[in-house]
């Protein structure tokens, strides 16, 4: 009935050959065809970022791309973030900082953060917030997410990090607000 096509792509390091309808988004292909349900659907309009995957080094909303467009691309999904049994530093820092509550936005945030740190291992808080602005979280107010990404960058660079799970008030002095007011974001 449907005009299915064969797509050859690479997902999480493995070559993948799959069959899909041209109208299926990459998100549908990941979730319904390949059973990689870690990428989440929140809006289907590119406004929430829950479906973010990394394609050829860039963050992309998999809901706004057709599955057939994945031909020849290198795709990393949340299922490919950890190296085997050991978590990626970002995953570890999200856990240590209690950066997730309901967890539905978490895969998308992790993929956006990975795309950022892969390109810019030492981002400022402004750069972190800008890079995560395409991901909506309704539970946390973003505070603990930004801290986790900051911590992960520090850990990956071998720098120290604040004591586990604490939020020292002297660092929480409204710097982000000042930065936003000055338009230092872009």
């Amino acid at each position: 009935m449907a005009n299915k096509v064969i797509v050859e792509t690479n997902i999480n390091g493995d070559p993948v050959e799959l069959l899909c309808e041209p109208r299926q988004s990459l998100l549908e292909v990941l979730r319904d065809v390949l059973e990689l349900t870690g990428s989440k659907e929140g809006c289907l309009t590119g406004d929430c970022g829950a479906c973010t995957v990394v394609i050829d080094g860039r963050p992309v909303c998999s809901c706004l791309m057709l599955g057939v467009e994945a031909t020849g691309k290198k795709i990393t999904t949340i299922e490919g973030l950890a190296a085997g049994a050991s978590l990626h530093v970002l995953q570890q820092k999200f856990l240590e900082n209690a950066s997730l509550q309901c967890g539905i936005c978490t895969p998308g945030f992790l993929m956006s953060a990975k795309a950022l740190l892969d390109r810019n291992p030492n981002p400022t808080e402004a750069e972190i917030r800008y890079s995560l602005a395409g991901n909506l979280c309704r539970c946390t107010g973003y505070d603990k997410i930004v801290r986790a990404v900051t911590d992960a960058a520090a850990a990956m660079a071998g720098r120290g990090r604040p004591a586990h799970g604490t939020v020292p008030s002297e660092t929480a002095s409204g710097m982000a607000g000042e930065m936003l007011a000055k338009g230092e974001v872009k």
């Binding site: 602005a133 930004v146 939020v167 929480a172 710097m175 936003l180």
Partner: peptide, 13 residues
């Protein structure tokens, strides 16, 4: 329009 992380500062507790 729900707040993005560019719309909020740290939230001190």
């Amino acid at each position: 329009r729900m707040p993005t992380c560019l719309d909020l500062p740290e939230i001190e507790t």
